[in-house]
Design a protein around this nucleic acid. Sequence first.
DNA 1: ACATTAAATGTAAGCGCTTACATTTATAGC
DNA 2: GCTATAAATGTAAGCGCTTACATTTAATGT
Lengths: 334, 334
Amino acid sequence: MATIYEVSKLAGVSLATVSRVMNNNKNVSDATREKVTLAMTELGYRPNSIAQSLATNCSNSVGLLVSELHGPFYGPMMSGIENSFRNQGKHVIIAAGHSNAEREQQGIEFLISRNCDGLILHVEAVSDDYLIALSKGPTPFVLLNRLIPALADRCIILNNRKGGYLATQHVLEQGHRDIAYISGPLWKADAKDRLAGHKLALSEYGSRFDESLLYQGDFMEDSGYQGFLQLHRSTTQFSALICANDEMATGAMIAARECGLQLPEQLSIMGYDNVFFTRHVYPPLTTINYPINEMGQMAANWILSKVYNKGEQPTHTLFEPQLVVRQSITKRSS
Amino acid sequence: MATIYEVSKLAGVSLATVSRVMNNNKNVSDATREKVTLAMTELGYRPNSIAQSLATNCSNSVGLLVSELHGPFYGPMMSGIENSFRNQGKHVIIAAGHSNAEREQQGIEFLISRNCDGLILHVEAVSDDYLIALSKGPTPFVLLNRLIPALADRCIILNNRKGGYLATQHVLEQGHRDIAYISGPLWKADAKDRLAGHKLALSEYGSRFDESLLYQGDFMEDSGYQGFLQLHRSTTQFSALICANDEMATGAMIAARECGLQLPEQLSIMGYDNVFFTRHVYPPLTTINYPINEMGQMAANWILSKVYNKGEQPTHTLFEPQLVVRQSITKRSS
DNA sequence: ACATTAAATGTAAGCGCTTACATTTATAGC
DNA sequence: GCTATAAATGTAAGCGCTTACATTTAATGT
């Protein structure tokens, strides 16, 4: 691999000049710029980005930590992010945190030790305090889907309470009154917020919240399955089931069908997230849209502007959910 | 950020010694090793990986190019890969190629210019010749899901012909004789191989292949939808439909249902890939398992062994598909 | 006690770039 | 034609590490 030195020799100029044309410095005459460019192509020269990073103290890389690399939720998020970065010449280094405090922390440290200029973090297990301490460090980061009041300006979140409200409102308006709910793990803020929205809608419509109709899941498919089974066994009847995310809704659908229920006739089911496969389950799942792709892009923007002084300042950090009506909720004529 | 220099000063040793303890060089007395370690923790020292890379000419990063970051197929692949690498201290830089020759090439060049030590490529559009030329270059790479005879030793692939055969065999054994087929784009080797397997099974069972029952899709959902519509309009009848991947099968299911067909009673549908959501569509899709996660790990192994001399040599590069029976194929009692 | 050898440590030259500063060359004003 | 100023180019000192080689120190044999 040719180095800048060989280019300078071939072009008959100094190292500095070659560096200048590489960095589009204005102080180079057209003639020499031409000479240098020629020499570069002749040698098939490519700048060594490592050396550049060392000299400039900027690695042009941003770290992205997500819980899982697979799964319907993270894909679109990473897509939005990679896209924004690549055409700015930044690259993204990925790591998975597996919703586990230790591994999340390892991931973050790994990314930092990799000299990332900035971090985009989708972490669930690590504590607020840890993150606050991290924010005192030299590596800037944004948080996706997590609100820490002390770090509010770097949190890009969804209005989960509103989403929870929207979901329940829709179910209520279709005439359902006996509504079961499978939540996420309630130590996670988003799970809590969604449930809060649910309760709010209930009370606004003069329905009271029934503890025996609540099952706490873990956002994974199987807990939706288990949740339905448990709810179904209990004595309290319900005509609709709201799940705090789509995977659990899917699990619940499978369980319901196994229990002989006709869907959606005998049970209406509601999801949350609007993950791509919700269109494909049967019946197509009514759900709440989570604009994760856009939020990913916004996170990328944040980094681009705060770390690299490129692009516009991110304008909003609070995104709004939307109801997506499909066919898993039927009207209940009472 | 503390540098090696400050550590050496605090510990009262030379730079070289500090470097030695960092790299676990045996020629350091326990006493000084202790001193240095102490100084490091006291200063909160972290080696600058950029500087290390420059000095060693090894970036400890491997580039991963996939068609899309989202989608059910790539997630598990990336998962397998990231996992293998991280606990070896390597990091993965991702880029998306979007099944488009130009963007794939850009992605590869981007990754190379980023000084990746090795590349894992899932490319579809770029030519064999380009890849062969690339293989003469200094950056080693493995190919995932693509066979180039001249580069066979670095191709990790699935026996797609066999998979195609298995799919059709199963359908035939359930008694179906009139079988429609929605293929992938036939310029792609995998699409071609799957179709070849289909034809082979057909002929082995004394059934002939009917051109009018073939529709060429593009592996995306909508082409399954369109494909079914076109096939359905034509005069030739069929009791089963085999799709060259799960997304198209899903699209076809939707179309079939829209045409008033009862699934699976009036039409059996077969997928390919065993993407995670196939369990969730209705009826659950019978399909062919593509062990993409394992193949990703194998690719990672390849890099680990060839580039970093770590881990065992990858043993096999040809993976075998397997039939996954669910409920989308019914027995045809003729 | 001394030479011989091995182990531990230090010295200094890179790795391929950027950039402040110095120097040279061109441009303009008189 | 000569100075004042701006533009173009060059010089050289880093950036934070690694590593070949040189040097010092400790261990061993006699």
